[in-house]
């Protein structure tokens, strides 16, 4: 986590692919995905293949740009996340998951965060009728199950990666929910550490790293302010301005692994929230038509697969957690 030379991708793709670290990483990642699949399937979840293009996608935030494609004369988007289709999927199944490819043109300022890729995958989960708490429990189980599987089965790969299995001792030993703090607690804590943090916004990269590096196992941050997230994170009806959502933060400075929430599902609420996030409801026609017809209340989350891989494999930068890295602003293979 300290080698500055590792913060930028290798000069060539062949060099990256020949690197033993990359081969070990791929095996770790495959084990993570297999563990998650087995765990979720055993819990009654159905896996769907997610779409790659659509007329509209997750508007995201923090300055990341979508990729437009020409779809027979219409502007379509590559998926930045599967959120809209995850909600739609609940019309068919109550508990779904998918491993979804996403593309986001992240702002250049993320090039040095060690944890932003332009092309990445999310392990997406959505559960009809579930509370935020239900979703957080599922998220914790996936992370713990994946880490346990890698530690149990891939001792040699962890050795190649230089990852001490003892890093997961606290995660695997304690049979208790991950610690939780609210966004307001996180802001106050950062203030005590001398780090100014806008209370109305996302925890910034530096602030998140400060909190992460002090932990020895993953922890949740809940209740983000409304102005920090997209329209689909549900606003707490009892606490206007506060979202019923969460992030899971990895320890040791690895930072955010997961974002999730209870979802807005009421048509009028969604339209108002779209305006609050500066969106043009007209471009969400298919989605709003569907919502108007009724969709289930739900909770869900997305796990950054490369981020989780980076954490479990103990890699310096997230680009090392993909065979074909694309980092913000860097023209590469």
């Amino acid at each position: 986590m300290t080698d500055q030379q590792e913060t930028q991708p290798p000069t060539t793709l062949p060099a990256h692919l020949r690197n033993p670290v990359t081969r070990a990483m791929v095996r770790v990642q495959n084990r993570i995905v297999r563990a998650a699949r087995e765990h979720l399937t055993a819990q009654g979840f159905t896996e769907l293949r997610p779409p790659i293009i659509g007329p509209v996608t997750d508007p995201g935030g923090r300055g990341s740009k979508q990729i437009d494609i020409d779809f027979y004369g219409h502007r379509y988007k590559l998926m930045t996340s599967a959120i809209l289709y995850k909600q739609a999927s609940l019309l068919a199944f109550d508990k779904i998951f998918c491993v979804a490819p996403n593309v986001r043109l992240e702002p250049l300022e993320t090039a040095n965060t060690s944890r932003h890729l332009v092309e990445f995958h999310q392990l997406d989960v959505e559960i009809a009728g579930a509370s935020r708490n239900d979703a957080m429990n599922v998220a914790q189980d996936i992370v713990a199950t994946a880490a346990a599987a890698v530690v149990a089965d891939l001792e040699d790969e962890l050795a190649v990666l230089g990852r001490d299995p003892q890093a997961f001792a606290a995660l695997l030993k304690e049979d208790a929910p991950f610690d939780r703090m609210t966004h307001a607690d996180a802001v106050a804590g950062l203030s005590r550490l001398g780090h100014p943090q806008n209370p109305d916004a996302e925890i910034d990269w530096e602030g998140e790293a400060l909190l992460s590096v002090r932990a020895d196992r993953p922890f949740f941050i809940t209740d983000y302010p409304k102005g920090s997230r997209g329209f689909y994170d549900r606003e707490n009806p009892e606490r206007p301005g506060v979202l019923t959502n969460f992030d899971l933060i990895a320890p040791e400075g690895y930072g955010e692994l997961i974002s999730g929430s209870e979802r807005e599902h009421d048509y009028a609420r969604i339209v108002a929230r779209m305006r609050e996030t500066g969106e043009n409801p007209a471009k969400y026609a298919w989605y709003l038509d569907m919502v108007r017809g009724g969709i289930p209340a739900s909770s869900g989350f997305g796990i950054g697969l490369e981020r989780l891989t980076r954490y479990i494999a103990g890699l310096d930068a997230v680009w090392q957690a993909t065979a074909f890295p694309k980092t913000p602003g860097v023209v590469s293979a």
């Binding site: 102005g227 609050e276 996030t277």
Partner: peptide
């Protein structure tokens, strides 16, 4: 209010 906050969040 929220559009302004979202702008500050997205473009610090």
């Amino acid at each position: 209010r929220q559009q302004i906050r979202f702008m500050r969040n997205n473009y610090p």
